[in-house]
């Protein structure tokens, strides 16, 4: 049977998110979006641009700057059967709502013995933008992935942003959907299909290779792709594994890649110490020990509050040279 041809459009990661938000708002009256400055102001990162005028204040809700309060309201509304999408202006601000997310949303289904569900999405940019300093630059996906009851995804491409956000909105569990300021302008092909979803828990091989697996998610996948390009010039064939989904985590694909390459570098923008990359690295070590020709290496963000000065900020975030240096460590 021939595959059905689906038309695609070239668009930015930002527009892919905006597109799926609009489509889900139109598809389901229970879906609404709430957050700071998302309506009349059109969204700080312009993800919700035009939506307030199109869908009105019932569906696109400007909130006061009270993250714990409005996240809790979204959780309560989800318990009562609605499907809220909460925008965090930056994921850093979700720290104010941490009690609501970890202590409430993540535990509802379990503590009620399955009586209640919490179909909630919390989305927004996590990680460095440009000189936003220490309080606006956190990568929190590892904190959230640590908590059972939450699903956590971090797409790196426009098509995954499009398909995974739809999956998130239709999911009956609370989902943390982390974007990255550096990804909003990344372009890609997005299918013109209002039912297109990318299931969670499936990593994706974005580039095949034989010498080393570069394992990452979110913007670091783009860094890994660029690093693989450079490594190829040096005669090193790197495979790029885009993790996409932290919880659930697809170790099958990651282990299969390591079985092929026998070496792994795990790249993540979050603080290197105690970050989610450590979880992936330890799992590779536990599950693929016999396949490894070298210890698994982590390449993460520097363990400092992100500084303001541009040169210092850039120093903190793993870049192509850092990834290549990590690969070279493997010998």
């Amino acid at each position: 049977m021939a595959a059905v041809e689906v038309a695609t459009q070239t668009m930015s990661y930002r527009d892919a998110i905006s597109k799926v938000l609009s489509e889900e708002i139109e598809a389901n009256p229970d879906v609404f979006i709430m957050g700071e400055d998302i309506g009349r102001y059109q969204g700080t990162f312009r993800v919700t641009q035009g939506m307030f005028d199109k869908y009105g204040e019932k569906r696109i809700i400007d909130t006061p700057i009270t993250e714990a309060g409005f996240t809790g309201i979204a959780i309560g509304a989800a318990m009562a059967g609605l499907r809220p999408v909460v925008e965090m202006m930056t994921m850093s601000f979700s720290i104010l709502a941490m009690d609501q997310i970890i202590n409430h949303a993540a535990k509802i289904h379990y503590m009620t013995g399955g009586q209640a569900k919490c179909p909630l999405v919390i989305r927004g940019p996590g990680g460095a933008a440009k000189q936003l300093s220490a309080q606006h630059t956190h990568c929190l996906e590892g904190w959230y992935a640590h908590a059972p009851g939450l699903k956590v995804v971090a797409p790196a491409t426009a098509i995954d942003a499009y398909g995974m956000l739809r999956q998130a909105i239709r999911d009956d569990n609370p989902v943390i959907f982390t974007e990255n300021p550096g990804l909003y302008t990344v372009m890609g092909e997005v299918p013109d299909d209002r039912e297109f979803v990318v299931p969670f828990g499936k990593a994706n091989i974005l580039r095949e290779g034989t010498d080393v697996s570069l394992v990452g998610y979110s913007r670091m996948t783009q860094i890994n792709l660029a690093a693989a390009e450079k490594l190829a010039e040096q005669g090193v064939s790197a495979e790029v594994v885009d993790v996409r989904s932290l919880s659930p985590l697809d170790m099958t694909t990651i282990n299969a890649s390591v079985a092929k390459t026998h070496r792994a570098v795990v790249v993540y923008e979050d603080w290197k110490f105690g970050g989610f990359g450590g979880e992936i690295a330890s799992r590779i070590a536990e599950e693929s020990f016999d396949d490894l020709d070298a210890p698994v290496v982590r390449c993460g963000g520097l363990n400092v509050p992100t500084p303001y000065a541009r040169n210092l900020e850039l120093e903190c975030i793993p870049d192509v040279d850092d990834v290549i240096a990590a690969v070279q460590k493997l010998g």
Binding site: A68, G69, F70, T71, G72, I73, A74, I75, G76, A77, A78, M79, A80, G81, L82, D99, Q100, N103, H104, M111, T112, A116
Partner: peptide, 22 residues
Amino acid sequence: FFGGWGIVGGHIPLGGGLAFAS
């Protein structure tokens, strides 16, 4: 009856959300 919560004050926004939904 939506519980049944252990963090003092933590359930109050959830109550707001129930009212929001209705």
